[in-house]
Structure formats: structure tokens, C-alpha cells
């Protein structure tokens, strides 16, 4: 298990390095940042001055290593537009995004695991069909449309929930549902498939032959094994919830980093975009690492392979 952990951390580190390089080169390829900063009416001299000031005239590789070394020291540069350190801009907003992402994945799991389990216990029953219907809906509805519908229903007509801002827990209800619902179908279908497979396995028959009660057979022996792929998928979806919050944060005017990245993209605020992409990528890598370790704990055979 320890060897496995070290191996996985090493691989995660390599992935992050590659990601940082890709992020850097992609955002530098997309536009001439000096032009954007200087503005459309700027003269060639001005642009050249800006280029010197920000170090764009240096070779790209050198720029990358400069950026990387300061990134490793916790300095992600300054926003071109707000002239504030990127780290501060992000750290002030990341809490909102994390809260939203966490609540959304929690909502998805709380809905999908019990629903998937019940559906698996009675395949093709009414409950199973209902769950399938819910899943198809979730997969088919665009998040933004679903979010807008909720705003109209709960915010405008019923006036139960606030539709904009992030000052109270109530502000998070609709964004959480809108974001989490999107992840629910995949997780539910996977739970269902896993449970159906596990419930017909030999060790479940053994558990029954031992005289264990159905609750124990279902939740101890079956769910633990069925949930392994769900854990991996949930981690990936959590990363997606954080990234996917760009749309939701914009719609509900939650000022997290999703909203910030939208704002930064509109302004070609390169350091901010780079930093956010790097942070989202890091989340993904760390979450996948976490899922792998959790899986190894849940199924001890994994760390042997």
C-alpha cells in the first residue's frame, strides 16, 4: 500500500508538470498578450515597451520556467486588468467554488447511490424505470437551461430562493441542484450496474448462506464492492463540478473562481486564466490520486496489481 501510494504520487506529480507546460504554451499561442494589454490604438513602440515590461520578448521556454518557478513559490503573477496578485484574487474566491463543487457532488451522491441501489435490487421495476427516467432527463437537460428554469420557478414565481449572490446558504441551494443533477445520472447508472453485478456474485451467495440479514448483505458485502468504480467516477465528477461551475457561477452570480475565469477570459487576463486552469487541473490530478488511494483501501487487490 505504501509503495503503491508513493508510485501514484510520483505519477500525479509528472502529470501536473506536463499540464503546467501545456497550459502555458496554449495560452501563449492563442493571442499576443502584449497587444491585448496595450490596447488596439497603441503604437508599435508602446506594444514593444509592454512586451519588454512583461518579459514577452524572452524565449517561451525561459518565460515558462520563470513562471513555473514563481508558481512553485506561490506567486502566480499579477492580473493585467485588476493589477492585483492572482493568488489573492483566487484565494478570496476559491472557497465559494469549493463549497459549490462539494455540495454539488454530495447532492449527486446522496441522490444517485440510494437510487442506484434500489434500482439494482429490483431491475425493471417501477422504481428502476423512474430512476432511468430521471437519469435520461439529467443527461439530456443542458445545465444552463435547467438552472434558468429553476430560477424562474423557485426564484421568480414561488420566491422561495434567492437567485443571485453568495451571501447565505440559501444562495447555494439552486446552484447545487443545477450542478449536482448533471452528475447524478452517470453515478446512478454506475451504482446500479455495479450493484446488479455484485448481487449475483458468489460471495453474496456466501454471505446469504452465512445467515446474514439482508441489510448486512446489501450494505456491507454488496455496496462496498459495487461502489469502487463509483468512487473513481465521483472524484472525476468533482473535478468536473469545479470546472463546470463556470457556467453555474455566472448564471447565479456566485463570485467564485469559475466566475473569475469567465471574467478573465473576456478581458484576456492571461495570468488569471493560466492560474485558474492550472488550479483546476491540479484539482483533477489530486482528486484522481485520492480516488485511486481510496479504491486501493476499499479493494485491497488494487494495490497489488
Amino acid at each position: 500500500m505504501i509503495v503503491y501510494t508513493i508510485k501514484r504520487i510520483f505519477v500525479a506529480f509528472l502529470i501536473l508538470l506536463v499540464v503546467s507546460g501545456l497550459t502555458f504554451s496554449l495560452s501563449h499561442l492563442s493571442a499576443d498578450p502584449a497587444l491585448t494589454i496595450a490596447g488596439e490604438q497603441a503604437s508599435d513602440e508602446d506594444i514593444e515597451a509592454v512586451r519588454k515590461l512583461y518579459g514577452f520578448d524572452k524565449p517561451v521556454v525561459e518565460q515558462y520556467f520563470n513562471w513555473l518557478s514563481s508558481a512553485l513559490q506561490g506567486d502566480l503573477g499579477k492580473s493585467y486588468h485588476y493589477k492585483a496578485p492572482v493568488v489573492e484574487m483566487i484565494s478570496g474566491r476559491i472557497g465559494t467554488t469549493m463549497t459549490l463543487g462539494f455540495l454539488a457532488i454530495l447532492f449527486a451522491l446522496v441522490v444517485s447511490i440510494p437510487l442506484g441501489t434500489i434500482a439494482a435490487m429490483r431491475p425493471n421495476s417501477i422504481i428502476d424505470r423512474f430512476a432511468l427516467l430521471l437519469a435520461v432527463f439529467g443527461q439530456a437537460l443542458p445545465t444552463f437551461w435547467f438552472a434558468l428554469m429553476m430560477i424562474i420557478l423557485f426564484g421568480v414565481w414561488l420566491r422561495w430562493l434567492p437567485i443571485s449572490g453568495n451571501t447565505s446558504w440559501a444562495h447555494f441551494v439552486m446552484p447545487t441542484i443545477a450542478l449536482g443533477y448533471y452528475a447524478t445520472p452517470a453515478l446512478m447508472r454506475l451504482t446500479r450496474a455495479g450493484m446488479i453485478e455484485v448481487l449475483s456474485s458468489d460471495y453474496i451467495r456466501t454471505a446469504k448462506a452465512k445467515g446474514l440479514l439482508p441489510v448486512s448483505v446489501l450494505f456491507k458485502h454488496a455496496l462496498r464492492n459495487a461502489i469502487i468504480p463509483v468512487v473513481a467516477l465521483a472524484a472525476v465528477w468533482f473535478g468536473f463540478m469545479l470546472g463546470g461551475s463556470i457556467v453555474i457561477e455566472t448564471i447565479f452570480n456566485l463570485k467564485g473562481i469559475g466566475w473569475l475565469s469567465y471574467d478573465a477570459l473576456l478581458r484576456s487576463d492571461l495570468p488569471v486564466v493560466q492560474a485558474i486552469v492550472l488550479i483546476f487541473a491540479s484539482f483533477y490530478v489530486i482528486l484522481t490520486l485520492f480516488a485511486d488511494l481510496l479504491n486501493a483501501y476499499l479493494d485491497p487487490r488494487i494495490s497489488v496489481r
Binding site: 456474485s201 458468489d202 460471495y203 451467495r205 448462506a209 464492492n225 476499499l298 479493494d299 485491497p300
Partner: peptide
């Protein structure tokens, strides 16, 4: 006692 000792025990416990 079942036929398949390889799969009759729960791999996770």
C-alpha cells in the same frame, strides 16, 4: 460450502 473458493469470499474484507 461452494464450488468456487476463488470467488466465494468477499475480496474486500
Amino acid at each position: 460450502i461452494f464450488q468456487e473458493p476463488m470467488t466465494s469470499l468477499n475480496p474486500s474484507f
